[in-house]
Every structure is written in C-alpha cells, then in structure tokens.
Amino acid sequence: MTGALGIYNYWIYVLLMMIGLYGVIAKPNLIKQAIALGLFQTGIFLYYISMAVIDGGTAPVWTTILDGAQKYEGPYDNPLPHVLILTAIVVSVSVLAVALALIINIKRTYGTIEYDEIEAMDQADKRADYQRGQVVDAADDVEHKLEGHHHA
C-alpha cells in the first residue's frame, strides 16, 4: 500500500486523539472526561507502536534460542518504542486511577459529577461566604465569569 492509505495507522491515531481531545473539552460529565483522556493517551500509544514497524520486519526475538535450529537474521521491528509504551501505559493507568479517586471524592462531597452543577455549587458557596462577610468583592465574580468563559 502506498500514499495516505499506507499509513492508515497514523490516521487512526490522529482520529483517536481528536475524539479524546473533543471529549476532554466538550463533555461536562467528569467520568466521560476521564474516559476521553484515556482515549487521547491510547492514540499516542498506537502512534509509538506504529513507528516501530519495519517493512517485512518481525518480532525482535532471537529464534535460535526458541527452536535451536534455524536462525532468522532480521529485519526486526524496533523494540524500543514498545518498551517505552509499556512504561507510558503504566503511567496512563496511574493517571486514570488518580482521576477516578478524585471523582469519587467529588461525588461524595458535591453529590454530583456534572461539571456545570459543581460550578453552580461553588458559586453558591462563594455567595454564602460573601454574606458571612468573608472574602470577595465584585472583582472576584468578574474574574470567575472570565474563567467560566474560557472553559466553555
């Protein structure tokens, strides 16, 4: 295969990444954001694995050791990206674990995992603080709106 189709792995990686990025930005549900983040990172793993492939290459295992008879003299796929991604997968699992731990805590304290509702509750907290005479003047609210705007 040649041309753009010959590197379809890379198209899939870009597609996965973009779906993930969209989810992270657009979904108000925190669990969906975590899933999207996982998808985003998985896309990158696919990219690294695709990069290791060599035309006609095979798994970088020394076959003499396995069957004792014939010896295959390459070409081998590059094992380094595989090893790197093994590490990156561990990292990504840890990120997901921390994210889920945070979401569980958020669910316990806020009672919801919808970003919009959490934001509204934080605003209500702020108004309560204001009424108790703590913190806040008008500037804080303006700045908060600005932040909300950026997030949207």
Partner: peptide, 10 residues
C-alpha cells in the same frame, strides 16, 4: 481543592 486538582490533572 478536589475540582482544582481534577482540572489540573486533565
């Protein structure tokens, strides 16, 4: 602190 942390995480 929880939402701040999650936002930073993402």
């Amino acid at each position: 602190a929880l939402t701040a942390s999650l936002r930073y995480l993402i």
